[in-house]
């Protein structure tokens, strides 16, 4: 979908926030770390995968997406997917949140999966490589990205669509996010493609030389 998440090449965002030291906690508030742990547990439980999670965040209202702190957007995404998967009940979750706000609830000390078990579940979700399928393109081939604006999830950003590039490497055969998000697991050859920055943006509007992405075979066509 041509959502607010697809920001490559857009102009007009504010300056970057201040840098943080290398040894700073990645969590600015205690609850941010808790949200990250919730995400780990939810992913590891198999309630949803990375594509479904990304798609949930992409569908957030554009104003909400831009205005809401990162881990709060993650929380909203995890909540909606766990509701969709019937892992939690909406009313129960709302009531419980209200009870915590009033200071009238606490987290019970119940055993659950260990960190190692959760990490295994997460690692599994990251393994998108599948049995090899013969690639249609080879390193050195010129290709063009299909001009296509699907309304669902895709990992083909708008800024490369319709543009000519060169296959730099074949990366094996990987699950196609566009279909996987609909529960249809299909694997395709994946390629690293390099674009001349001038072909993406026009000579006068870029100071980069090359931009590389991984693109699935069905995103590509002859030049």
């Amino acid at each position: 979908m041509d959502g607010i998440h697809d920001v490559g090449g857009m102009d007009g965002f504010d300056d970057l926030p201040p840098d943080e030291p290398d040894d700073a906690s990645p969590f600015h508030e205690e609850w941010e770390g808790r949200v990250y742990a919730l995400w780990v547990a939810a992913i590891a439980s198999g309630a949803f995968d990375l594509d479904e999670f990304r798609y949930a965040l992409e569908r957030h209202d554009p104003a909400f997406y831009l205005e809401t702190p990162y881990y709060e957007r993650w929380l909203a995404g995890v909540e909606s997917l766990l509701l969709d998967a019937d892992v939690v009940d909406r009313e129960e979750l709302a009531d419980r949140a209200a009870a915590f706000e009033r200071g009238e609830a606490e987290v019970t000390d119940t055993p659950g999966p260990s960190l190692d078990e959760l990490s295994e579940g997460v690692a599994e979700v990251y393994q998108t490589a599948r049995e090899p399928v013969d690639p249609a393109f080879a390193p050195g081939d010129e290709i063009r990205v299909r001009k296509c604006h699907p309304d669902g999830h895709t990992r083909c950003p708008q800024y490369v669509r319709g543009v000519r590039g060169t296959v730099e490497a074949h990366r094996g055969t990987h699950v196609l996010p566009d279909a996987n998000v609909r529960g249809d697991e299909r694997a395709e050859p994946l390629y690293n493609v390099r674009f001349d920055a001038a072909d993406l943006w026009g000579d006068e509007h870029t100071d980069a030389d090359g931009v590389h992405l991984e693109l699935w075979e069905s995103y590509l066509t002859e030049p």
Partner: peptide, 22 residues
């Protein structure tokens, strides 16, 4: 968000999907 995170944690904990230690 703090209350929502704790609420979700408490529900996942009750379902055996997440412990406070984890």
């Amino acid at each position: 968000p703090e209350a929502r995170a704790r609420a979700l944690q408490s529900l996942l904990t009750e379902k055996g999907l997440l412990s406070a230690d984890a």
